[in-house]
Design a binder for these strands. Structure first.
Lengths: 330, 330
DNA sequence: CCATATTATTGAAACGATTTAATAAAGAAG
DNA sequence: CTTCTTTATTAAATCGTTTCAATAATATGG
């Protein structure tokens, strides 16, 4: 330690953290020594003493999905502004990996965790809060858990998608989506049912639900190919769980010899940047991805900085429909 | 601490770090207590004692670019395997932000830094190595710096692109790329010159170099629009700095009333997943993105774990051409 | 059954900062 | 010249681990 200045290390600490209590003369001396020695306080020691870092953990199921990339950008930007830094954890929708990462983050003493749980809400999350680590659920409702959450009105998104297709004359609609234990999936389906209930009984469309194990293009493509092979093209439109799924579905439909949107209308979800540039520009339900991440980061940070005054809150954004060429009237 | 097991904390430490020296019976007891108390070792204390963290910093210019997303995934996976964790830093190609992040990472005592410097090699990086922080340059040659690097043969990539267009009859080629102070850009141009030098003098294509301030679709689109407005379509093909730039260029060319590939052939770089699904499936120079990140992480980690035995090395991958529909013969 | 070798466990020091209580020095008041 | 304030600095405790030397317990051999 820099006793080069001829002072005790307590004084050095004061020079850094409460310069006002030092005699101006001493302060100058210490500062000079700090500069000369290029002294940088050891973050681990500070953390150990203080019990708190300035690190956040961001746990997402698939960072390859531009939705989460944009979200991560929002998180990073908000964090940087508040002097925080973000550890990125990619779970590949694997619950075990998710648990493992959560343990690691806890070990790293992260101040807060932002997570989009891959499946139904993770039990480990309860312990997180108890450990005094801030927690905010991203793009997931906080069912059962006493935490903050930032979400998009998924029921409304489902409703928008269905109404759009109904208005264009579609009556046999496939819903290509994830497992029903994902709250988000359930919510969108609820929204679709709501839309259907508003339609005169005789004219109601039928829904074919086809679940895929992972929300990726490959997974979607495989399932769609199998479906068509088994049951033929028994639908005129597809509502997809996200845009990547839509790309996969489109690939499979084309491979089976059909075209988009002539034979099948396809609607995506998220409105990632590429949706506009896709082979067939994709109709999609847009979500404010960056803002979602930004707001979530602000939430945890506020929780971390002010645990007593903090009241858990839920921020909900509204999705909206972007019509492009992948859907058409029949 | 878990003296629930009725042992000293030294024994707990041993149970975790050198289980073989404990009596099997004691070990069992301690492990039970660890499970029950959900004990997770405090990383700050470990770090303080050991003098080293298990955190890596990854600094990239644009995490929205799928190239870097895939790379980040590779880094994350390799890091996880070695028990490391990654702090993600997105610089938006801004040198100041880059410097700021490097300082933050140094303050966090990261064990190693993986960086793709936005511009010419950053001076701050020299200090990094001196501080005992591992350093590996990703997708950039380590000019002047004494570090490891993982790169792709950019000269060869440039050569491949140019040869491809030349073979298809293009003699007026625009090169839509970044500032020449980016080593990578310079290398690719060198490769293109090399390709040209192999062509009989009379038949050599002319190159119109158009530089863009940022490697994004928007930036590319703006520059391309202006170019066409000013000078018309004075080229038959475009070699782009990356696939996003290619998308931007295509957008602008179409907005000016021309079509791809009928009027202009466009070739991208990186071969991001989406290139295959683009409006016009994009011809591109593929790079092993994930492997690049994975190898880079392995390199820093090896440097970190074995500083004395470590010899800096350069790993170079080869790019290859993927031909799709955005380029054609004239 | 004692002396010695072996094994298992523990106690205490160390890592590098922050913080609080104690001390030293200087100034003001009586 | 004391005594009391005020201000400036320091010493020591603390955070949660790891590690090494020391001790306790057990086994082995003579």
């Amino acid at each position: 330690m820099a006793e080069k200045a001829g002072v005790s290390l307590g004084t050095v600490s004061n020079a850094i953290n409460r310069p006002e209590i030092l005699a101006p003369e001493t302060l100058k001396r210490v500062r000079k020594a700090i500069d000369e020695l290029k002294f940088i306080p050891n973050a681990s020691a500070q953390t150990l003493r203080a019990g708190k870092t300035r690190i956040l953990g961001l746990v997402v199921p698939d960072i390859s999905n531009p939705f989460f990339t944009d979200l991560a950008k929002g998180v990073n930007d908000a964090a940087l502004l508040a002097g925080y830094v973000v550890i990125l954890c990619n779970t590949d929708e694997d619950s075990e990996k998710e648990d493992h990462y959560i343990d690691i983050l806890a070990g790293q003493n992260v101040r807060g965790i932002l997570i989009t749980p891959a499946h139904e809400t993770n039990k480990r999350l309860n312990e997180i809060s108890k450990r005094g680590i801030g927690l905010t659920l991203v793009d997931r409702p906080s069912i059962g858990l006493d935490t903050c959450s930032v979400e998009v009105n998924d029921a409304h998104g489902g409703l928008l998608a269905l109404e759009h297709l109904y208005e264009r004359g579609h009556r046999k609609i496939m819903c290509l989506t994830g497992e029903s234990d994902i709250p988000q999936v359930a919510e969108r389906e609820r929204g679709m049912r709501e839309a259907i209930s508003r339609i005169p009984k005789a004219d109601r469309p039928t829904i074919i639900t086809q679940r895929i194990p992972m929300m990726t293009a490959d997974s979607a493509s495989t399932v769609m190919s199998e479906h068509i092979a088994e049951k033929g093209l028994n639908f005129t439109a597809v509502i997809c769980g996200n845009d990547l799924v839509a790309f996969g579905a489109i690939r499979a439909i084309r491979a089976a010899g059909y075209s988009i949107p002539e034979d099948v209308s396809v609607i995506g979800y998220d409105d990632i940047d590429f949706a506009a540039n896709a082979t067939v520009p994709l109709t999609s339900i847009a979500q404010p991805k960056y803002q979602l991440g930004y707001a979530a980061a602000e939430l945890v940070i506020s929780e971390c900085e002010n645990p007593e005054k903090h009241a858990h809150q839920k921020i909900q954004f509204q999705p909206h429909l972007i019509v492009r060429n992948s859907t058409r009237s029949i």
